[in-house]
Amino acid sequence: MTTLPDRPDAELLRLDQQICFSLNAASRAFGGVYRVLLKDLGLTYPQYLVMLVLWEQGELPVKRIGEHLRLDSGTLSPLLKRLEAAGLVRRERSPEDERSVTVSLTEDGAALRERAGQVPRRLLTATGLPVDDLAELRALLDRVTVALDAAVPDLTEG
């Protein structure tokens, strides 16, 4: 059970009290580090996420990639087009269902995985935190995400 802080609303409305702001600031800081680390790979951070899913899962329909990354097909389509233009992925319509597009790695896309191997280590080092602390943070953020996803229907009803 979550207990609400016994503080005045005015105090709770301070920017330095907003977890969402801290998460956004951390996300932007991560983005800056990823920009530097991914430059030599020729990837943006969202493209890197797509590649991570494909390296881990193999060939997938666009819909499944979107589920893994919590992105809709309207956001994914331009990313996938750029990755295809770069020669890293191949997109093919399913012969069974023309609405479904499957994405697979090209030889160059699969080979990029080896070069990307140093990215997580360098990012972990850049945080300055012990690996156990980062694992705990990730677990907490996963719990927050599940709780917030579950809360959305309740909030829209009230």
Rank of each mutant, 00 (worst) to 15 (best):
I65K: 01
L124M: 15
Q57L: 11
R115T: 01
R91A: 11
E67C: 02
L88S: 03
A86Q: 15
S22L: 15
E67R: 14
Q47H: 14
A86K: 11
L49C: 06
K39D: 15
D9M: 10
A135N: 04
L141F: 08
D133K: 13
T106V: 04
S104H: 05
L15F: 05
R64I: 09
R28Q: 04
V36R: 13
S73R: 12
F21A: 02
L83V: 01
R122A: 15
V89P: 06
D149L: 14
V89R: 00
E157W: 07
Q17R: 12
P120Q: 04
E92P: 00
P5A: 15
D6G: 03
P120S: 08
D9A: 09
A25S: 11
D132M: 08
S100F: 03
R99Q: 13
R35A: 11
A110H: 12
Q17C: 12
A111T: 05
L54N: 02
P153L: 07
L41Q: 06
T3L: 10
L148V: 15
R35N: 05
L37H: 05
A86C: 04
R64D: 07
D142E: 15
L41P: 00
A151F: 04
V33L: 06
R122Y: 01
R99W: 01
L155S: 03
S100W: 02
L69Y: 04
L124W: 11
L15Q: 14
P61M: 11
E98T: 14
G128N: 09
